[in-house]
Design a binder for these strands. Structure first.
Lengths: 233, 233
DNA sequence: CGTTAATTTGATCATCTTCAACATGAGTGG
DNA sequence: CCACTCATGTTGAAGATGATCAAATTAACG
């Protein structure tokens, strides 16, 4: 039998959040659950025809765009309950989406979106909102990358992850990172070496305990202060 | 009498591009022409309630977000025929929009959008496309900022401007920049001093003649090569 | 286990920032 | 039309941040 959105523990965080119980019923019938995928596998790749939007059900994903020189740029990380794929609304996906660990997603196919939004104006508004939020997030990353020191960027990254984890019912202080140092560095516009040294500094200053991909935040406030602290570069 | 979109020289570049003549007629009645505004004036500011989308009719605009330290980050420049304001779809604008020179816009109010998209599915699709394009642009700027040298960033900026100017019927080689060195630097994540030195280098290498805000591109190909040239930093 | 990938650490170097001074230029009022 | 002013742009010298290169260490996985 098919699992429904109403049963899903992520319902409060996910797209259907904005829908009434009646709307939800219609919505559910359109959502496809996709088979789980192994770490490193692509959900879609740059240039693929836009198929729909995806909500992370379990695990996590990164999205990347590839530069002309073959190097990739990580443009985002997505945790359970988060929706991604908006970059594809222009007919083709401009990013690739890769599973960072054993993960699964729900798919909301384009055809369903087109059908549904006619009947459910709330869904339309929510999609617009999420898309606008994606733009806002990207733009604040722009600010991040150009006006912040390496230290501030990593602090911002951890603060953001902590908040999102907590929102999803995980611990906000004991983080299990699913992405590599290289991914983090790439996302933040740094090198893996710098990120490694920054983690070391966090340990030395007793802001966090870092052991491989496990990060235990000791002083959230200090991290938060670091982000907004007295200008950037 | 009211000017119509059909009369507008920018119709081919602007939002109504995707509409049939019949659709266009409905569309036009919804578009408001706003009085021209002087350089430095705000069209909207961060936190303003989302009123609608704007198309540049003449002149140009920049959008900025403000960081916690009071410093601003320029997130985009908009030329005639370009649409902006998508960041506001999440109820409130997350940017401020400032006229860079004597400028005018057409407004497509939110209420009209909601009414129109029901009747004109093509418009809906076009809006989605434009919004996706905004995301894609931002993300490629992310890549730009983190993986490119100062020189490559300025080259990319000029190439992009040149292409957009040409598309709008202006010269693609003789550019009249409406933004200050400071704005350019800010947009590219650099300082005004660095931008100034880079312009100097462009002159020395005979890639462009630069005189204040007038830039005459001498070797477009070389600029283009510089952008994609052999990795970044 | 052995092999490969990921991470850490160190030393050196380049790019870009910062600070400071000066030049230019557009606009304003005399 | 000119002198004055404020904003904008240019140039120079010094310093810092983060990149790069190289090597060691650890973790992951068949």
């Amino acid at each position: 039998m098919k699992l429904t959105c109403r049963d899903c523990s992520l319902a409060e965080l996910c797209l259907p959040r904005a829908l009434s119980p009646d709307d939800m019923e219609q919505f559910e019938t359109m959502v496809d659950q996709r088979p789980a995928m192994a770490r490193g596998n692509f959900l879609y790749q740059t240039g693929d025809v836009f198929g729909g939007l995806y909500a992370v059900k379990s695990g996590s994903f990164k999205t990347t765009i590839s530069a002309s020189d073959g190097e990739d740029q990580v443009t985002g990380f997505y945790l359970p309950g988060e929706l991604f794929g908006f970059d594809g609304f222009d007919d083709h996906y401009s990013c690739s989406a890769v599973a960072l660990e054993h993960s699964s997603v729900c798919e909301l196919p384009l055809s369903s979106i087109d059908q549904l939004v006619v009947k459910l104006p709330n869904l339309r508004r929510e999609l617009d909102r999420l898309m606008a939020r994606e733009i806002t997030t990207d733009q604040s990353m722009l600010l991040q990358l150009s006006r912040r020191t390496a230290e501030q960027r990593l602090a911002a990254f951890l603060v953001s992850l902590s908040l999102r984890f907590r929102q999803r019912g995980f611990s906000g202080t004991e983080l299990r990172l699913s992405m590599s140092r290289y991914d983090i560095a790439n996302y933040l516009g740094l090198t893996a070496e710098t990120v490694s040294r920054l983690f070391k500094r966090l340990k030395e200053h007793h802001l966090a305990l870092v052991n491989g991909r496990t990060v235990i935040i000791q002083d959230f406030e200090a991290l938060h202060r670091q982000v907004h602290g007295s200008g950037g570069r």
